Simulated scan of single mutants.
Amino acid sequence: MSKKLAIAAATVVGLGIGGTIAMTQLGGGIEECGATAVAGGDIGGSFELLDKNGELVTDKDIITEPTLIYFGFTFCPDFCPVDMARNSQAVDLLAEQGIEATPVFISIDPERDTPEIVGDYAYNFHDKAIGLTGSAEQVDAASKAYRTFYQKDSSGDPDYYLMQHTTLTYLTLPEIGFVEFFRNTNTAEEVAETVSCFVNAT
């Protein structure tokens, strides 16, 4: 766990570049949203992955409303299920405010996570949740777009290996792109409040 936290911390430092880009894109009024120094044009972008039916989808197909994107794997014993449950709860809190949002889970373990497995995994957290995977090349491209880190841990059982990975959730808005990230220490209430702020500011 400590290794994952270190990875997340390193990613946070990396995300600090180019914050003014995002603020320029969004215009005034977002400062009150508590925006981290985000990297605007440096984070996020196009991707092509497979949905639960094995059909090719792009970021334009998926990001049609405020979207909480998380990179993980279905065998994950700790952060992934907790973070996905938190993101799903935040989506429900937003729905109570009349704001529609989507939780997305992108697998960084295509060796084991088939489209059907990832789709079922995501759905178990929320009926709006979208699970995505793809070839190793497609997953790597999506990960690089969001500047996340992942690496297979081959030190244990080859059938039950773990994946070291970034443990951040990325808030992405249609037509705007990435605007904020959340750590695993942020509560569902904090996530919902921040998403709502960005939606109202844009």
Rank of each mutant, 00 (worst) to 15 (best):
81 P>W: 06
70 Y>F: 15
94 L>E: 04
76 C>F: 02
64 T>Q: 09
88 S>E: 04
118 V>E: 01
99 I>C: 14
52 K>F: 02
114 T>P: 03
109 D>N: 14
16 G>F: 02
15 L>A: 13
69 I>S: 07
52 K>D: 09
79 F>V: 15
59 D>G: 08
64 T>D: 05
66 P>G: 03
56 L>H: 10
37 A>P: 12
37 A>G: 00
81 P>E: 10
34 G>A: 06
70 Y>W: 03
108 I>T: 14
49 L>R: 08
55 E>K: 15
113 D>S: 12
20 T>V: 15
102 T>F: 03
33 C>K: 09
109 D>V: 10
109 D>I: 12
88 S>Y: 01
20 T>M: 15
89 Q>S: 10
98 G>P: 04
28 G>H: 03
111 E>L: 12
108 I>Y: 03
69 I>A: 08
45 G>D: 03
109 D>E: 14
74 T>N: 08
29 G>Y: 06
23 M>F: 05
88 S>V: 00
18 G>P: 02
39 A>T: 08
51 D>I: 09
72 G>Y: 07
76 C>Y: 02
31 E>R: 10
53 N>D: 15
83 D>A: 13
39 A>L: 02
17 I>E: 09
66 P>F: 11
42 D>R: 10
43 I>A: 07
68 L>K: 01
101 A>T: 06
53 N>T: 12
83 D>K: 05
49 L>M: 05
95 A>N: 09
76 C>W: 04
97 Q>F: 01
98 G>L: 12
114 T>R: 09
56 L>N: 13
75 F>G: 09
60 K>R: 05
58 T>I: 05
84 M>V: 01
115 P>G: 13
59 D>N: 13
55 E>I: 09
65 E>W: 00
28 G>A: 15
28 G>L: 07
77 P>K: 09
47 F>R: 12
75 F>M: 08
60 K>A: 15
67 T>D: 01
82 V>D: 13
51 D>N: 15
60 K>E: 14
101 A>E: 03
29 G>R: 09
104 V>H: 07
14 G>F: 06
101 A>R: 00
24 T>R: 08
110 P>K: 10
29 G>V: 01
113 D>T: 10
73 F>I: 07
83 D>Q: 13
119 G>A: 13
119 G>F: 15
14 G>N: 13
45 G>Y: 00
100 E>L: 14
53 N>S: 14
101 A>Y: 03
26 L>Y: 03
96 E>A: 15
84 M>K: 02
30 I>M: 06
104 V>L: 03
64 T>K: 11
35 A>R: 11
24 T>F: 05
